[in-house]
Write a protein that binds this DNA or RNA. Structure first.
Length: 462
DNA sequence: TGAAATGTTGGGGCG
DNA sequence: ACGCCCCAACATTTC
């Protein structure tokens, strides 16, 4: 058996992995290579066209069969289909399997035989279906290798690591690889899951599973998660075992729903599902000044800035804060959601085409089961509600660390002496910006602009 | 997986 | 004792 990884960026279409995901992939491959070597095998790596690489490799090694797990992004489906045809024609046995999803997207339809476009009925339907048990390799056994290892590059030569070393924060936060995934899953299920329903919304708490990057890169499958939750349920005598578990599984459900939508609506990474949004007039942003303030966490709204800086430092952002920060870009700044999606794509270690697309279209109100146009997150209220002590802001916006909780989410409203006491000076010459837009004004402008799309009314492009 | 405006209710201060 | 007002608390509706 010859374990192979092919980095085929061109085969990913417009969505080759972004910077943070490449960092993750490098370390995930390193970890896989380690565990293969512990069992007498190794990982051989190539970059280039997958069909060409695999065809040549089969010829060189005399391989008779080739196996992979399926992916569900449009470009990946197209490539895998082509690969399967080519390799079969070349006389190889080709078999692909599903390890990425609980249910194959093409098997899920509503009673009209159409894809679901609303989460709740989708998930209710999925919950009636059996979930296959995860396949588990027997641990410890030696893996037979080929008679001779073919020449190949190691994972280190794939060029996945950043040239300038901005990845220190990622390294302190994450342990890519199957072992790291298993530890995190164990911890979550044993320690955090029972309180998940309440704690998942508090960004300073370690209350979410944080399993997304392992799930994305395939070191953990949703079936393993399902199995782990089932085991808890068996012990407790019910499934799902409590409210926390039910909420957690429904987040796995959102991931399934995202893949379901991407499979059935493959244009959605680039274009809104709701066609009327094609003509929405996003705000001008000379020099991308506002977009850049958002990216760098310099909007002047502490909860937004904390999230954007957590993202930059760790390659991850708490989900509650993702919603707030994304809403801010789309509603308060009225910048195109695709610009936000592109930034998340490059900076998230869990960047996943299906989930990223769903999340941004949901926020913008142009997707399936989306937030209505009039839902505008108020960053100050959200901060006060979900980070009442300001601990999250203090952690990620150290300039504000000494601001009292009462005004940490709206420092511009703090009495001058309180700011002075906390060592904060606001504005371009100070150490923390004033809000780049006024909340009430931006909210009203967003309502006006988005209301024009209501009920199929179309704003015509000039 | 909102927020803000508006409406309703009920307790308490007060003339 | 009573009505009136204020306003907080809660509910409803509107965006």
């Amino acid at each position: 058996m010859l374990p192979v990884y092919v980095l085929d960026d061109a085969g990913e279409g417009a969505w080759a992995a972004g910077g943070a995901a490449r960092w993750w992939l490098h370390h995930a491959l390193a970890s896989l290579d380690d565990s293969l070597r512990a069992r007498g095998s190794r990982l051989v790596c190539f970059r280039g066209d997958a069909g060409k690489v695999l065809g040549e490799l089969a010829t060189r090694t005399g391989a008779r069969a080739i196996f992979w797990n399926r992916r569900y992004e449009p470009a990946a489906i197209a490539r895998d289909t082509r690969l399967k045809a080519e390799l079969t024609r070349a006389g190889l046995e080709v078999r692909s399997g599903n390890a990425a999803l609980l249910h194959e997207p093409h098997t899920i339809t509503n009673k009209q035989g159409r894809p679901f476009q609303v989460f709740t009925p989708f998930w209710r339907h999925c919950l009636t279906l059996p979930v296959d048990a995860p396949l588990v390799l027997t641990a410890g056994r030696q893996i037979p290798g080929p008679a001779a290892w073919p020449p190949s590059s190691g994972f280190g030569e794939l060029g996945l690591l950043p040239r300038i070393r901005w990845d220190a924060g990622l390294a302190e936060t994450w342990t890519p690889g199957e072992a790291g995934a298993a530890r995190r899953l164990r911890r979550f299920v044993d320690v955090a899951m029972s309180a998940y329903a309440e704690r998942r919304n508090l960004p300073y708490e370690d209350g979410t599973s944080m399993l997304s990057p392992w799930l994305h890169s395939g070191e953990l499958s949703p079936r393993q998660i399902w199995r782990a939750v089932e085991d808890v349920g068996r012990a407790a005598g019910l499934f799902p075992p409590g409210n926390g578990a039910r909420h957690f599984l429904s987040e796995v459900g959102w991931r399934e729903f995202a893949h379901h939508l991407l499979f059935h609506f493959p244009h959605t990474p680039e274009r809104p599902l709701r066609e009327d949004f094609e003509h929405f007039r996003w705000a001008e942003d000379p020099g991308d000044a506002r977009l850049e303030a958002w990216r760098r966490g310099r909007t002047g709204y502490p909860i937004v800035d904390a999230g954007m800086r957590q993202l930059w430092h760790t390659g991850w952002m708490h989900n509650r804060v993702r919603m707030i920060a994304a809403s801010f870009l789309v509603k308060h700044l009225r910048l195109n959601w695709t610009a936000g999606a592109a930034w998340f794509w490059d900076t998230l270690v869990d960047a996943d085409l299906a989930s990223n697309t769903l999340g941004w279209q949901w926020t913008a109100g142009c997707g399936a089961d989306a937030a209505p146009y009039f839902r505008v997150f108020a960053p100050v209220l959200q901060g006060q509600k979900f980070d009442p002590e300001g601990a999250y802001v203090r952690r990620w916006v150290p300039e504000l660390a000494r601001v009292p909780a009462a005004c940490i989410h709206a420092p511009w409203e703090a009495p001058p002496e309180v700011l002075a006491q906390a060592g904060v000076t606001l504005g371009p010459k100070g150490n923390y910006p004033r809000p780049i837009v006024d909340h009430a004004q931006a909210r009203q402008a967003a309502l006006d602009a988005f209301r024009a799309l209501r009920g199929g009314e179309v704003v015509v492009r000039e």
